[in-house]
């Protein structure tokens, strides 16, 4: 069990590329933190710096009460689950799981007991003598988990562990990993580009973009009050609607309507953000959109259309019948987010 402390940790590659801009944050003991962002945002580099597979250019990284900047991966008391599982193809499942313990000169009977225990926990008991090539993708993923569990590490690191599984298995493994982490109470850092994984698994999410941490917060904080237009459009499927608004004497002008809002006038252009499910269809509502496409999703429907010349997505429940054409709606003012159009940063109301 351990806390992880980043103090202005930075990664600059020898060619001058700054993969991670100086980042400072704190991971609590037993917390499940998800690093999320598009490819190339530096989230994997961040994880690999924690693992010790990537050197830290500047700053201090602490795991527990040790500064680990110069400590070898093997001695950091961490375990990592890789995207392609990284199982040793020539070893049986048993040896794969026990290899890390064997290298640490753990007595043979202790290894056997721990491997059996981990296998039981992961439903792998019947497969211990097989080779990785004789297992399905989900089972291989479990072996990789087993390899991490037996070591009893202070920190679990996951590098997009579910991205090679099919959708159904991914949902199942997501729950299993989360449940396992809860049960073991081990601090975990999980990297993914899938915002659904981030939302469902995390205690806290760190959203990254271009080597910069855009926002750190609980899933609901991230979802309800994104710190920037990037977070707003990255998190949530479909993403938040981002609409340009202009200032008027009595509030903000959106299409032909004035929103009676009193925002401090900084002179900056503003962007209004609203989640698709916060748009309420209302025959007497002040706004109207032209619905072009109705997406049928079973539990609900998505309406894609235009408000003036800006595209908008609306989320309606399944019992709400809609047709293409004009839809009138209302927007509750209290759910709206505003961003500075130039910087993309959230503007407080």
């Amino acid at each position: 069990m351990a806390v992880v402390h980043f103090d202005a940790v930075q990664k600059v590659y020898p060619n001058g590329f700054e993969a991670v801009k100086p980042a400072s944050f704190y991971i609590e003991d037993g917390e499940f933190v998800v690093l999320v962002g598009p490819s190339g945002c530096g989230k994997s580099t961040m994880l690999r710096m924690i693992a010790g597979l990537e050197e830290i250019s500047n700053g201090v990284l602490q795991i527990g009460d040790r500064v680990v900047n110069d400590i070898d991966p093997a001695d950091r008391d961490i375990a990592m689950v890789f995207q392609n599982y990284a199982l040793y193809p020539h070893m049986s499942v048993r040896n794969n799981i026990g290899y890390g313990l064997k290298n640490r000169a753990v007595p043979r009977d202790v290894i056997a007991a721990k491997v059996d225990e981990a296998a039981k926990m992961l439903n792998l008991s019947d497969y211990l003598d097989r080779k990785p090539s004789q297992l399905s993708g989900g089972q291989r993923q479990r072996v990789a988990m087993g390899r991490a569990i037996v070591r009893d590490p202070a920190l679990f690191l996951f590098d997009e562990p579910l991205s090679n599984l099919d959708a159904k298995l991914r949902n199942q493994m997501r729950i299993e990993i989360k449940a396992l982490q809860r049960r073991l109470g081990v601090t975990s850092v999980y990297v993914t580009h899938d915002q659904v994984e981030a939302m469902t698994m995390a205690d806290r999410i760190i959203v990254m973009n271009g080597g910069v941490i855009e926002q750190i917060g609980t899933p609901s904080e991230i979802y309800q009050s994104p710190a920037s237009t990037f977070v707003a459009s990255f998190m949530g499927a479909p993403p938040m609607n981002l609409l340009e608004v202009t200032r008027a004497d009595t509030g903000l002008r959106l299409a032909d309507q004035i929103l009676p809002l009193d925002l401090p006038d900084t002179g900056a252009e503003l962007i209004l953000g609203i989640r698709p499910e916060d748009i309420i269809p209302d025959p007497n509502g002040p706004f109207s959109i032209m619905v072009d496409i109705v997406e049928e999703l079973g539990a609900h429907r998505l309406l894609h259309g235009r408000l003036g010349d800006q595209s908008v997505t609306v989320h309606v429940p399944k019992d709400y019948t809609v047709a293409e054409g004009v839809l009138r709606f209302a927007m509750p003012i209290e759910v709206l987010s505003f961003f500075d159009a130039a910087s993309g940063q959230r503007v407080s109301r």
């Binding site: 693992a51 010790g52 597979l53 070898d72 991966p73 093997a74 961490i78 375990a79 990592m80 890789f82 995207q83 392609n84 990284a86 199982l87 040793y88 193809p89 020539h90 070893m91 290899y99 890390g100 290298n103 640490r104 390899r147």
Partner: peptide, 29 residues
Amino acid sequence: VPEELVEAARIDGAGPVKFFIDILVPLSR
């Protein structure tokens, strides 16, 4: 040989000699 395998072995505490004998040699058979 995938880079991940090297990294997994590093985290599993296999030094250069162990990695060579335990992983690379059997893989190269």
